[in-house]
Amino acid sequence: MAAVARPRWGENGNCEFDGKIGIFPFTNAVAAKRTSKNRVKGTIETKPVKSVNQIETKAMMINMLIPAIKAKCPPHEGEKVIYIVQDNSKAHTLQDDPEWQLHYKQDGFTFVLTQQLANSPDCNILDLGFFRSIQSLMHKKMPKTVEDLSGAVYDSFNELHPKTLSNVWMTLQFVSNEILNTRATMITNFHTTRRRY
């Protein structure tokens, strides 16, 4: 699970907030059940979870994402309302989920879950360009194990320059403008067609 926000730049051009909230692997640390040529029995190994389902994602959001947002959110007066945009997969949690309702308000923060349209990668900041950017950095590290892969992704996430993330947000803004323009054109054309008949 990855979470980013729009980077903030000061009047002097310095980055005041890099927008990188965090990246959290869906993995477990488990002891090896038997000895092999690679490790002895009992060695702690990193294994991916069997299924990234709603239980796993909800636990990740409550236990990892919310604390990370609270720790990294730029200072702000008054109550902070944070919108968490999800890509509408079945594994994601809805705002009215009973367990989420116990956690969505805390320490002056209100966390609101929203869903974007299904199958719309151009509207997802991560799919639009951020994952490609960290993927190009990660492939240079050539990881061979799950531990190496997790470490390489985490390092690439941290190494990515905030300007790159800022550029992806600008791209999302242009995409959103084009979607609105196209929708407005379609509505205008529909009304024109109806008047003709």
Score class of each variant (00 low, 15 high):
Ala3Tyr: 00
Pro7Lys: 01
Trp9Phe: 14
Trp9Asn: 05
Gly10Gln: 07
Gly13Trp: 09
Cys15Asn: 13
Glu16Asp: 08
Ile21Cys: 11
Pro25Leu: 07
Thr27Phe: 12
Thr27Asn: 12
Ala32Phe: 00
Ser36Leu: 13
Lys37Cys: 11
Asn38Phe: 10
Val40Ala: 13
Thr46Ile: 02
Lys47Gln: 15
Pro48Ile: 11
Pro48Gly: 06
Lys50Arg: 04
Lys50Asn: 13
Ser51Pro: 12
Val52Tyr: 01
Asn53Glu: 00
Gln54Cys: 14
Gln54Asn: 15
Glu56Leu: 06
Thr57Phe: 08
Ala59Gln: 13
Ala59Cys: 14
Met60Thr: 00
Met60Lys: 00
Met60Tyr: 00
Met64Phe: 03
Ile66Cys: 04
Lys70His: 01
Ala71Leu: 05
Lys72Val: 07
Cys73His: 05
His76Cys: 07
Glu77Lys: 14
Val81Phe: 11
Asn88Ser: 09
Asn88Gln: 09
Ser89Trp: 04
Gln95Ala: 12
Glu99Pro: 06
His103Ser: 08
His103Val: 01
Tyr104Phe: 07
Tyr104Ile: 04
Lys105Ser: 13
Asp107Thr: 03
Asp107Val: 01
Gly108Val: 13
Thr110Asn: 09
Leu113His: 10
Leu113Gln: 13
Pro121Asp: 01
Ile125Gly: 02
Ile125Gln: 01
Leu126Ala: 04
Phe131Ala: 03
Phe131Glu: 12
Arg132Gln: 07
Pro143Leu: 02
Val146Pro: 00
Glu147Phe: 10
Glu147Ile: 08
Ala152Ile: 11
Asn158Cys: 06
His161Pro: 05
Ser166Ile: 02
Asn167Cys: 14
Val168Asn: 06
Val168Ile: 06
Met170Ser: 12
Thr171Trp: 12
Gln173Tyr: 01
Ser176Ala: 14
Asn177Leu: 00
Ile179Tyr: 15
Ile179Leu: 14
Arg183Ser: 13
Ala184Asn: 06
Met186Asp: 14
Ile187Thr: 09
Ile187Met: 05
Thr188Arg: 00
Asn189Leu: 04
His191Asn: 15
Thr192Lys: 13
